[in-house]
């Protein structure tokens, strides 16, 4: 009897590790799917409008055209008028702000705020699958959709957030809600996402982000980012090269 148990032990261990591995693979795939619907694609040109609400009062609206390719983004501001010609270039964790008249690009950090509760890092392509290690915490419904709850821990120092609690819908694989924490574990930002756009990727139609609402939990400042005019197209690498950016 004992020898049977001993023989079964390696088989049970193999089964256990296979299960763990399967969960890891699923989480990565889940994050990749969620990243894709938030802009991490081979090439995309889209319009973004940001509106900041401070204690319920509407503030500045910014509009810009966003060119993205994998972890690279180029923002060309179109409104308000006084910001025309200004640009922001993001190459992974390298970021620059460019103003007409002052040709020297100014190096900026991902933490620097773009507007209201939105940091520069919030506009850059989302690469949670690459930048974070994930563990599954459980399940919960968000806006009537059953979601996996993932705890994401940064695996490099260059990311905007150290820890994220991320709700991804089980049926669609779309990020529905995110809570952002400091190193000390303090919640300081919350975000919710809507996906009313759709785009064609590899001959398939996928849901694509249409709205992101970021709330600063410490100051009660809310920033709404609306995404439209999404065009899937190859964006040349040269578009993101500082040497070739005619400004």
């Amino acid at each position: 009897m004992l020898y049977k148990k001993i023989l079964m032990l390696p088989a049970l261990m193999a089964l256990f590790f296979t299960q763990v591995h399967a969960v890891e693979v699923d989480l990565k795939a889940l994050l990749k799917s969620a990243d894709r619907s938030r802009g991490n694609l081979q090439g995309l040109v889209w319009s973004v409008e940001t509106l900041t609400l401070e204690q319920g009062k509407a503030g500045q609206t910014l509009k810009f055209r966003l060119f993205t390719k994998n972890a690279n983004s180029l923002i060309r501001f179109t409104s308000p008028s006084r910001m025309r010609g200004q640009m922001m270039l993001m190459r992974d964790r390298n970021m620059w702000f460019i103003r007409p008249g002052l040709r020297k690009p100014v190096a900026i950090s991902p933490r620097q705020r773009l507007t209201g509760a939105a940091s520069n890092g919030d506009i850059a392509s989302t690469n949670y699958a690459g930048d974070y290690d994930a563990i599954l915490l459980g399940e919960e419904s968000v806006e009537g959709k059953l979601c996996h709850i993932l705890e994401l821990t940064a695996n490099n120092k260059g990311v905007t957030y150290d820890k994220i609690k991320y709700w991804i819908s089980k049926s669609e694989g779309l990020g529905q809600r995110a809570d952002y924490y400091t190193v000390s574990g303090k919640l300081f930002k919350k975000a919710s996402f809507e996906y009313n756009n759709s785009i064609g990727v590899d001959k398939n139609k996928i849901s694509f982000i249409s709205k992101m609402v970021i709330t600063d939990t410490l100051s009660d400042v809310k920033t709404i980012l609306s995404f439209s005019d999404i065009v899937v197209q190859d964006v040349a690498d040269s578009k993101f090269n500082l040497n070739l950016l005619v400004r």
């Binding site: 190096a107 950090s109 991902p110 933490r111 890092g121 120092k157 260059g158 905007t160 957030y161």
Partner: peptide
């Protein structure tokens, strides 16, 4: 050389 040491710190 410019290095993004963390999300807040740049060294150059």
């Amino acid at each position: 050389v410019q290095v993004t040491v963390s999300d807040a710190l740049l060294a150059y």
